[in-house]
Design a protein around this nucleic acid. Structure first.
Lengths: 148, 148
DNA sequence: TATTGTTATACTCTATAACTATA
DNA sequence: TATAGTTATAGAGTATAACAATA
């Protein structure tokens, strides 16, 4: 039996895109509806919750977003009083961003909801399968980013 | 030792999004640069290559895109002479779309390039790992799309 | 009335380039 | 000169609503 060597249905980039879109649509709807946050803003919030204070450049590296997205996301978070700007005396072109008390409070509300959503998504997965998926995704990411 | 129960770095929706973005950036650059196609147009081309002729509605189902995207993609493909419109006598609100000879020729050129790219992405994966990844992605997709 | 497909509109995300202020 | 960050602009993806033609 011959069959087409390429079917969209079995094409990895397509499957990856469909799975990722399904998840991010769910996630971004949830963040926006419940907390008024875009995904970029949620990422900045999450990283700052882990890191005390960071420059926009460090945030860009940690969130895999570019500096433009960081600038917009932190502008929105700052306007809501969720993060504050602190001077960077070592380099006055830059500055530090850090959560305010309100930012920490919002994060404390979001984090459990995010974990619950992840748990529901992975409900049918064993611990081993979760680890496998994470490891496989990392390898795909590295392969896609490194030389052609 | 306590550590944060939620770190962005280990958050599945984030890892999935980063991996998918890395792959789709590569793919879409490649399609656009080499063949002048957007991803939506490539998907329509690929499905029509498998299916002879389909209505826009059937195409939307097969590509996981909405009817607006299908309408725009098929408009662009039609303008380049890659697909043609055929009447649907059973329902004259609708029509069939099918590849032209030029469309088939372009697809014959693209398909090997797409497969080569997929092969490079999965270069370090065993056959078993590829199957695992595909199966895990399907399960995530189903979980994300079915009830909250 | 309901459905197929198109068009208009808008919002998000991403990428490029120009700008500012510092270094 | 080069770098950190911001702003402006445009392309691509996605979603809603209004519309034309047909069922």
């Amino acid at each position: 039996m011959t069959h087409s060597p390429l079917t969209l249905d079995r094409f990895l980039p397509y499957r990856l895109s469909v799975a990722s879109n399904a998840v991010s649509t769910r996630i971004s709807n949830s963040y926006r509806r419940r907390f008024g946050l875009k995904v970029a803003e949620w990422r900045v919030l999450a990283i700052l919750a882990e890191s005390a204070q960071l420059t926009p450049q460090a945030l860009a590296g940690a969130t895999r977003m570019d500096k433009i997205s960081i600038s917009r996301a932190s502008g929105a978070l700052g306007a809501r009083g969720l993060i504050e700007v602190r001077p960077n005396h070592d380099d006055r072109r830059s500055h530090y961003l850090a959560l305010t008390a309100e930012g920490r409070a919002l994060y404390a509300e979001i984090a459990p909801a995010a974990l619950a959503l992840e748990t529901r998504l992975l409900d049918s997965f064993s611990a081993e399968e979760r680890a496998q998926l994470a490891a496989l995704l990392r390898r795909i990411e590295v392969a896609a980013e490194s030389g052609l």
